[in-house]
Design a protein around this nucleic acid. Sequence first.
DNA 1: GACATCACG
DNA 2: GACGTACGTGATGTCC
Length: 935
Amino acid sequence: MSTFGKGCHLHLIDGSAFIFRAYHALPPLTRKSDGLPIGAVSGFCNMLQRYVDGDHGPDAPTHLAVIFDKGSHTFRNDLYDLYKANREAMPEDLRPQIPLTRQATEAFNIPCKELEGYEADDIIATLAHQARDAGGRVTIVSSDKDLMQLVGDGVEMFDAMKNKRIDRDGVFEKFGVFPDRVVDVQALAGDSVDNVPGAPGIGVKTAALLINEFGSLEELLDRAEEIKQPKRRQTLIDMRAQIELSKRLVALDANTPLDFTLDELELRDPDPEKLLGFLAEMEFRTLTKRIADKLGAEAPVIPEAPAPAAQAEDAPAPEQVAFDPANYECVRDAAALAKWIAQARERGWVAVDTETTSLDEMRAELVGISLAVEPGAACYIPLGHRDGDANDLFGSDKLAEGQMPLQEALDLLKPVLEDDAILKIGQNMKYDAKIFARHGIDVTPIDDTMLMSYAMHGGKHGHGMDALSEMYLGHVPIPIKPLLGSGKSAITFDKVAIADATAYAAEDADITLRLWQLFKPQLHRVQVTTVYETLERPLVPVLAEMEMHGVKVDRDVLSRMSNAFAQKMAGLEAEIHELAGEPFNVGSPAQVGEILFDKMSLPGGTRGKTGKYSTPADVLEDLATEHEMPARILDWRQLQKLKSTYTDALQGHINPETGRVHTSYSITGANTGRLASTDPNLQNIPVRTEEGRRIREAFVAEPGNVMVSLDYSQIELRILAHIADIPALKQAFADGLDIHAMTASEMFDVPLDQMTPEIRRRAKAINFGVIYGISGFGLARNLRIPRAEAQEFIDRYFQRFPGIRTYMDDTIAFAKEHGYVQTLFGRKIHTPEINAKGPHAGFARRAAINAPIQGTAADVIRRAMVRMPGAIRDLPAKMLLQVHDELLFEVAEDAVDATIAAARDVMEGAADPAVRLDVKLVVDAGRGANWAEAH
DNA sequence: GACATCACG
DNA sequence: GACGTACGTGATGTCC
């Protein structure tokens, strides 16, 4: 055995990173014989084997160890009890796999090191220093930014996911400083993942700027007075202690007491019997065989256990085809395209993606189409690329060479895209479907990987392709940013060189296809196939049609209102300045706060986290009873909101070709199953104030048509009555009573005929509070009553309707056990924070209580929307908008009654037959020349 | 780009 | 016993 020194190269694998990556990259595999979850172990072993056998060239290891975390309490928790406090709980099926990964490491005969009370990062730091001091080199296998401070002097990192080494320059790219100043930057910027506080309002960019200017964190803090920006200066002076604490949290401890030496980490061969024994015990057939072959040993026989359930299976495809842009074909003529079409027909599926000039599908021009039929087998068909030489005024608009005519490609593709026997797979298919629809192609049938992810993982993480690819395929897609640039110099996709576009676009289709292959079999294992097939996927064509049809908005009405608002605001502004005795920016909450609380010394000035005064409406309303100024500011703010967000901005959203406004609904935007509306958001058009409501007068029907609005009456309270099984509430709904008055009567012992508006108002607030996961504090603030009194109301409510308490307790218990809650229709809403410690827990609990109620209501209207096109097919009526519990239609005058009848039937029966509600659903209808009248 | 504010259900 | 609190969204303006 030699002594570690010059010429030696120590590789340190961050064990936890390997485990999590393996866990997320693979489906939830279980051991056939007994159902033990082993997906992460399987992935871990594959990654370990691949790393050991990999070709590292001149960076090959002479010494190797895998380092793990041990215990949850470290010296950092003693410094700061909130450190890593917002970490998600470990998934249930991962926990039992952790000890197995230790066993796996030992089976590979690789030293496996951990130390109670220290994070793996500290052990890595200590070993890296020791190895470097002994004259050797070090490679840290991890992409964790917390380890970047160790880079330099022969220490480098290796990002196994991106297959990329990270040296001093790589660290500089990430942090804007070299490794020796990384902790300084981290101390300032903080870290929301580990809950390191840092300095409020300062991110990595600003931190690097400051550190580079002053040389070091200590120098910066000592000379903080010299900082020019006043807010930044104050923050650094005020927050000094917190920043210094942050530095101690992020700095790694390179002096952990280790009970082993570097020499013990020397690379050694595995004992075939031990390694194969372990792999066989795990029942990894493919891997056992592969390693047996390599070691020249006999593969142990793994008994073919009778599968307990159909779902248990070995790794479906552990051999992943590598992503390689060189494999992608650029399709430039009909003959080449025909080959891809034939492949799609042969398989019965094809992944499709479109590239266009805009994210707005109503304005976007088709630039190219990519297809994928198997992992790694993808192509790009450029159709609308233009020569991007901006200096050439004449050539800049010409189609680039080597593209087939757009119409020719579409003519060839149309039969495939519309063929019932060929499944079209997309990521956010609504976008592509709209693009194709504008070229007369009705894409069907479809699958959508974004919606699959939403059905399976809603609440856990986002569902964008980049995130899904990284999480589930372990591959970081080619970013679009470098291709398009940003800011003023940004270009559209048609100006991207065809070679670059091919690599990018074909990869998107490739990724989509791989995600689909991974997700498709998982849907039924997670038991969300029905959710996906009835509540998500069928919504795509329905929403696409609504969005493309749009809603007519009268520009003149908006424009006149904008002018009127501007005039009023000018008057108010002058009045406010007069009252203040000086001019200031009324639109700046900070300046408003200074005037009200400093200059005028009004009470109630609280500061937000950035140190500025907080001036929300409820605070100003309280002041407005005594003072003129806050009242005028509130008036001004209301007008400012109406003007900027609605009467001004909405005009810009009127499509010049259609004269209508085309919103975009996000199916996966809200965790509960609600839709979200963007560009513009038509789900928050004012209605609560008279002045605001008049904006709805601009939403009009075409001549000869009428706006018709149908909305569910009290749908969330009805669902609550059903789910929590509250007889009194159910009876009240059955009798058609005023539900809030009834609640008030029950709670306060007031007969219905003696009910006052004030008592009813309180009961109404409590009813809503229950749906939101009520708290004494919240109700007190809402009703502006003392907290004790609010708590008393709540206690009385629970006493009168005990089922509510049971529902809340059961829901939280369910969420804690399973990590999700469910709607009546089986939608799962994950609650990853439910077992967290600290303030997150409260949020998570209330969200868990609300989600089944809000989510079930969302499911109900989704079901109604899916059935609506069929129900009104023969009527001259169009469904235009959805606003959570309301559907807006544009209907020919003579068909209004028929449409209301048909739509009401669909909406009131939307839960049937899947769910038999104890409470009937009631739909109110209205009609008029515009949305204000119809609502 | 973070934060504060406010529009909706 | 303290903590910080109604649930779910999106758009805008200020300020750094």
